[in-house]
Simulated scan of single mutants.
Amino acid sequence: MVLSNMSHVLSSISNEEVSPVTLNDHWSRLARLILLASMSAVGSVGNVFMMSAVMIEDYLRKRGNTFLVNVGLADLLVTGLVIPASAIVILAGLKDNLAVCKFQWFIAAWCFLVTVLSLTAIAWENYFRLCYSIDVYHKLTKRKITFLLLSIWTTCGCISGMQFYAELSFDYCTRNDLGLIPYQATVCAIFVFFPLSVTLFCYIRTGYQVRKFKSRPNHKAPITFSWDCALAQTNMYSFVTFLLFWVPFGVILAIDNVNKVSGKVFYNLAWLAISKSCINSILYGMLNRHFRGAYVNLFQYCCCKTTVSFSRRQRPEGLRPSGDVRVHIIPGYNMYCSPQRANESGGRSKRFTERCSSARANGREVYEL
C-alpha cells in the first residue's frame, strides 16, 4: 500500500512540465548539472566571503552586522544543501525523488523565514545606528543579539518542520490543494507580511531622518557616518532584490490555491526565488567598498597565496601615512632612522649610516622603529 502511494506521488510529480528537483527535462543532463554546480559553487564561495568579510574588515566588525552574517548563513545552507541535492539526483540518473524534494523544500522554507526576520533586524539596527545616539545603540548587547538569533532559527525551524510533519500547509512537491488554511494564513501574516512591512517602514524612516540631518546648515558629517549610510543603502538594495526574487513566486503560490497554474511557471519561479541566495554576496561586493576590499584581500589570500595583512587600525582615509612603516623588534634595531637622524649622528657610527642608506633603498623613505 505504501509503495503504491509512493509510486502515485512520484508519477504525479513526473507529469509536471518542470521537475521540482531536476528542472526542465528538455534540457540535457550535462547542461542542468553544469548550471546547478555553477550556482552552488559561486553562491557558496560568495556567501563564505560575505561572512568572512565581517570578521576581517575593521569597519564591518560591529555587533549589529551579525545579522548580515545570519543572512549569509541562511543563503549558504541553500547553496550548500538545496542546490547540490538536485545535482546529486541528476548524477544518479533519477528523474525525481520525493524525499529529496521534501528535504529541499524544508530547508528552503526554513532559510526563507530566517532571511525575512534577519532583514527586519538589519533594517531596525540601521535605523537605531543612524538616527539615535550611541548610548541607545549600545543597548544592543552581545547577549541580546545571541538570544535573538537563536530564537529566529529555532522558531523558523519549528514552523517549517510542522508543515511537513502534520501536513498543515501547502505541499510544494506534490502540489496537493489544501486551500488557504488558518495555519498557512497565520504564518504568512505574522512571519512574512508583518516583518516585511516593518523593514520597509524602517528604511523609509531612516532615509527621511538622514536627509533631514544632512540638510542642516554648516553640517559636516564624520566619515564613519557616511560609511554607515552607504552600508544602510546597500542593505536596502539587498532587501529590494529579495523582494524581486521572492514576490513573483509568492503571488503564484497564492493564485495556485485558487486556480491551478502550470507546473512550468510554478517551478521556474520557485527556482528563480532560490537563486537569490547565489547573488546576494555579489551584490554587497558591487555596491559596498568595504565588502569589496575584503573580498579582494580574501581572494588574494586564498587563491593567489600572497601575504595579505588584514588591517586592524581604524583611520580615515586622509590620515593614513604616505610612506611605509616597518617595525623591528630586534634590540639592536630599536632606533629611528631618517636623513636628519643620520646627519645628527655625524661620525659616531659608520654602521648607523649604512643602516640609514639601506632603509632608503628602492627610492622610498622607510623608517625603522
Rank of each mutant, 00 (worst) to 15 (best):
K102A: 01
H290I: 06
F201W: 13
T206N: 04
F164S: 00
Y59W: 13
Y165F: 14
F49T: 07
L130D: 06
L231W: 03
V265L: 15
Y172Q: 02
S40I: 12
N65W: 06
V71Q: 01
I330V: 10
T22G: 02
F201K: 07
H138L: 12
I330Y: 13
L81K: 00
K212P: 04
T154Q: 01
A123P: 08
I13F: 00
L283H: 03
V187Y: 06
R32K: 09
T66L: 08
V247T: 14
S309T: 13
K142L: 12
E16Q: 12
C111Q: 04
I329K: 03
C111Y: 01
S215T: 07
S151Y: 07
S52T: 12
L98F: 10
I145S: 00
M50L: 14
L23I: 11
A41V: 15
P20D: 04
I181Q: 12
Y336S: 13
A74P: 11
V251E: 03
A254E: 10
C229T: 13
G285A: 08
I34L: 14
Y367D: 13
W110P: 00
A232I: 09
T141L: 11
I255Q: 05
S12E: 11
L148K: 03
G250V: 09
F67I: 02
S14Q: 14
V114D: 02
G80W: 09
E354D: 12
L117D: 04
R320Q: 14
W124D: 11
T146V: 08
R143E: 15
I134W: 07
C156H: 01
C173N: 00
T155A: 02
K260E: 14
